[in-house]
């Protein structure tokens, strides 16, 4: 007989005690918007629920000197209405606004969206381009920081070990020379899983691109950085020819699948289109 248990720790100390006691049997739950459907489909069968949705340390959005810290249990609806994030991470806010529908956003959390590691995750591409790091609490209660760029390993597999928990997402504050965009194409305007999504952050200096970060959803088994295309832009002057050739290159960089949402050819086509739009939108912000 399966005696499922549920605990709701009030703080990280209580959380630590529970993790110590139950070890790898724990399943963390906050919004539950991914977990509960997975339970119904019997993809996951949690034995011990640890509800982290009301632990203060996981809930705040704090602006420090160089970095923005987002508690992992912050709801997506709170991400979209945060003045700090609207100011400092507008592409993350843009992605959050397009996640699911309003009811989902009222429950789903940013940490949950990352940990679920869908290849079409909405928050992952912006976080990849923002150079985010994840603060992770391990099973012993020790804390480590890992770049999100090393976090997604393969289809729905992340660097999180059983019993580990993302507690914060750290985003370095962007400089004035940085501009970016997020765009998503879905099959409808609400509750749409991305066919293709693209986040971009550019580090510009009067038409000269010092650095580019491009990340995509829906194009690979994981949310992924387009490292090769980034190299084409790096240390180059952005002009029509470069945009055109980079778009073409980006469309070939990945091996997307064909599924019910779109074919491989359509996804590649969208990639080129979204790249041109993203780069032009980003440059407009800089007045380039």
């Amino acid at each position: 007989m399966n005696h499922k248990e549920y605990f709701k720790p009030n703080n990280t100390q209580e959380l630590g005690q529970l993790v110590k006691e139950f070890g790898s049997k724990v399943t963390f739950i906050a919004g539950g918007t991914d977990l509960i459907p997975q339970m119904r489909d019997e993809v996951k069968s949690p034995e011990v629920f640890i509800d982290i949705s009301e632990i203060d340390e996981l809930l705040s959005i704090v602006e420090e000197d160089d970095v923005i810290s987002i508690g992992a249990a912050t709801k997506i609806s709170e991400v979209t209405s945060s003045f700090i994030l609207i100011t400092h991470c507008p592409i993350l806010v843009s992605a959050a606004e397009q996640l699911g529908n309003i009811l989902t956003r009222n429950r789903a959390t940013i940490g949950g969206n990352i940990a679920n590691a869908s290849p079409c995750s909405d928050t992952a591409p912006p976080l990849l381009t923002l150079n985010a790091s994840l603060v992770i609490r391990d099973i012993k209660g020790e804390v480590k920081t890992q770049s999100i760029n090393d976090f997604f390993l393969s289809y729905k597999k992340t660097a999180l070990q059983q019993g580990e928990l993302i507690t914060q997402i750290l985003i370095p504050k962007k400089s004035e020379k940085q501009c970016g965009s997020f765009v998503k194409i879905g099959q409808r305007n609400s509750a749409a899983i991305s066919v293709v999504s693209m986040a971009m952050m550019l580090d510009m200096d009067s038409g000269h691109c010092r650095q580019a970060k491009i990340a995509m959803g829906g194009m690979a088994p994981i949310p992924i950085r387009a490292l090769k295309t980034e190299q084409l832009l790096k240390n180059n002057t952005i002009n029509e020819a470069l945009i055109e050739s980079s778009a073409h290159h980006l469309a070939q960089e990945f091996l997307p699948i064909s599924d019910i949402r779109g074919s491989e050819e359509y996804r590649r086509h969208l990639t080129a289109v979204l790249f041109k739009r993203s780069i032009n939108n980003s440059l407009k912000q800089q007045g380039e």
């Binding site: 099959q187 409808r188 609400s190 509750a191 899983i193």
Partner: peptide
């Protein structure tokens, strides 16, 4: 209903 696409209020 996530895969069978109905028009939502936003469409």
């Amino acid at each position: 209903l996530g895969e069978y696409i109905l028009p939502s209020s936003m469409d």
